[in-house]
Simulated scan of single mutants.
Amino acid sequence: MSEPQPEFSKIIELGDPGRAPKIFSLTANEDQCRKVAARLGALSISHFEGEIRISTTKTEIFVDGAVKAQMVRECVASLEPVDEAVHDEFDIEFTRIPETKDEDETETEEDWRLPEVHLGDDIDIGELLVQQLSLALDPFPRKEGATSLADIYAKEEKVSPFAVLQGAIKKSDDNQ
């Protein structure tokens, strides 16, 4: 099975360690915005761009930058469209491992505190921007003043006429 193609791809070579940082600016075209919106479950993305600065050593890759997007998502309460502007800065550290990894090597449990492992001498900075955008999104976008569909369509709870009396009489061993 082949790997899915990234919706917004820009592969760059990392180059020799110790060189001056490389700076890249990317802006997604209309087709790329449409594909990224579909991947992230957004109704639409009208603008998506990012800037990335990469520096490397023999064993590490340092990436920092910013991602910006203007998008329309679905309100979690009313399912109405809601505009969302994203502007997020990020800073990532990778541990650099050569591409010649033994296939017999067993995987160990990943420690989230350690830098992410990166194989090879190139990196897809477009895909990296899409990943950072997904992390920056509001997990529960809600339109201001939206009424929940659950409140509108929920069945009315039937209240017993005796509910007012519940707890009015204290229970004891004598009146149970």
Rank of each mutant, 00 (worst) to 15 (best):
K155N: 14
D102E: 13
I169T: 07
I152N: 03
T147G: 07
D31K: 15
K101Y: 11
R142T: 10
A154V: 00
V67S: 01
S25D: 12
D173A: 13
D121E: 14
T59I: 04
K58R: 14
Q70I: 09
V36M: 05
V76Y: 08
L128W: 08
D104Y: 06
E80M: 14
T100Y: 12
I92Q: 06
M71E: 00
P81K: 09
I97G: 03
L129Q: 04
Y153R: 06
L43S: 11
P115T: 00
H47G: 10
A42I: 05
L79Y: 08
I169Y: 07
S55H: 04
L14M: 06
R73H: 12
R113G: 08
Q5M: 14
K35Q: 15
V130F: 06
E107H: 09
G50T: 01
D124G: 04
D121T: 01
T27Q: 15
K58H: 12
E13T: 08
R96I: 00
R34D: 12
E116T: 03
Y153K: 06
D102A: 09
G41N: 05
F48D: 01
D122C: 10
T56M: 08
M1Y: 09
Y153W: 12
K158G: 03
D124A: 06
V86E: 03
D173Y: 09
D121I: 00
A20V: 07
T95V: 04
L128M: 03
E156I: 02
K10D: 12
P6W: 11
I123Q: 00
A77Q: 13
I61V: 07
